[in-house]
């Protein structure tokens, strides 16, 4: 154990923690932009600067030492942080009201904390160095005028997904996040998992046609057998979005393209809404009672005439345990073990 003095208060810390870790554990806010708890540290945005034992360091990378004295609110610290946030803002599209990340934007949060004022901003020159948009991917959009080159997407793609479809390209103020050959993201090896979109601190990577949910429900993905935890975003009676459940031990919040973006089928107009019965060769809507009466009649007829083994049922690897249990129970009740499913596919 070590003790670190932050702004005059002693805080207990473990060796190996960073100044940021310790500050956060003590409930002390330090603004960050390029830091993300899931990823390796980068130290590029320079807004988490603090003074540690008198020298200016990035809190996200500086390891603590026993007896270290950290100051987060000195004139020097505030000056560096404020200037760096202002500099980022000079190269950032500031149309916040219409931005999908409005109220959910790390840059807004940091600006508010640092107290960026119109008076100070008006002294600076606006330089939007890249106004391009990449709308090639159907699920999300890249808006370079909002990119702060924090590299969180680059590290996410490499460290979370392991694809490394994007990286830094060019130098200086032309620095941008690029696919190989600077092609649209759709033509790259991007797997559209959306992990970078999930982590982008600004509106540079946003889901297209975003609808903000009014409530959220935790559940499990219904595609492959990995069993990732999902949090469904719901508005009215519509599922409008999906994010990974960070508490789920299987995926720890990570999702693939299907899990994250493949939810449109739930509210699709093609959904079956009433039982159908084939009449004169065409399936026509009917009541539950009629449909079930017809089926139960057929079951009795076949069992009586041909015995229960004339019935066969395919249960489902897509349905719940409870559904499956009742399905096989029903068939075995009827006297047949002709129950199978597509476990082999």
């Amino acid at each position: 154990m070590a003790t670190v003095n932050i702004n005059g208060i002693d805080v207990k810390a473990r060796e190996g923690m960073t100044v940021l870790d310790v500050a956060q554990s003590a409930g002390i806010y330090i603004p960050t932009l390029c830091y993300h708890p899931d990823l390796s540290t980068f130290g590029g945005c320079r807004v988490c600067m603090v003074e540690a034992d008198g020298s200016a360091v990035t809190a996200c990378r500086a390891p603590i030492k026993d007896g270290m004295v950290v100051r987060t609110d000195t004139e020097r610290v505030n000056q560096m942080r404020r200037v760096n946030v202002e500099l980022i803002m000079t190269n950032h599209d500031q149309d916040c009201q219409t931005c999908a990340k409005n109220n959910n934007c790390k840059l807004q949060e940091v600006c508010a904390f640092e107290g960026i004022t119109p008076e100070r901003m008006s002294r600076l020159r606006r330089v939007i160095t890249n106004k391009e948009q990449d709308t090639s991917n159907p699920a999300f959009k890249r808006d370079f005028a909002k990119c702060i080159t924090c590299g969180i997407c680059v590290r996410t793609c490499e460290e979370i997904n392991g694809v490394a479809a994007i990286d830094f390209a060019f130098r200086g103020y032309k620095t941008t996040i690029s696919t190989i050959g600077n092609k649209p993201i759709l033509e790259s090896k991007c797997e559209s998992c959306g992990e970078c979109v999930e982590r982008c601190p600004t509106g540079a990577l946003v889901v297209k046609n975003q609808v903000v949910p009014e409530r959220e429900v935790r559940t499990i993905c219904s595609y492959c057998g990995v069993g990732c935890g999902l949090v469904l975003g719901v508005r009215g009676n519509r599922v409008v979005g999906v994010r990974g459940d960070r508490q789920n031990p299987v995926n720890q919040g990570h999702l693939c393209v299907k899990g994250r973006y493949g939810f449109g089928f739930i509210n699709h107009p093609d959904r079956l809404k009433a039982p159908l019965v084939k009449k004169n060769g065409t399936l026509t809507e009917t009541s539950w009672d009629e449909a079930l009466t017809l089926i139960s009649g057929k079951i009795k007829e076949f069992t009586d005439k041909h015995g229960p083994n004339s019935l066969a049922g395919l249960t489902s690897a897509r349905c719940t345990n409870e559904d499956n249990y009742l399905f096989q129970k029903l068939f075995r009740f009827l006297g047949t073990n002709n129950i199978d499913h597509c476990a082999r596919l």
Binding site: G43, G44, C45, R46, V47, M80, V83, N84, L87, I88, T90, N91, V127, T149, F168, F170, R171, G172, Y173, K174, T175
Partner: peptide, 10 residues
């Protein structure tokens, strides 16, 4: 500038 950090890049 390599473009990595805010002060040098911007």
């Amino acid at each position: 500038s390599c473009g990595q950090c805010t002060p040098c890049r911007s």
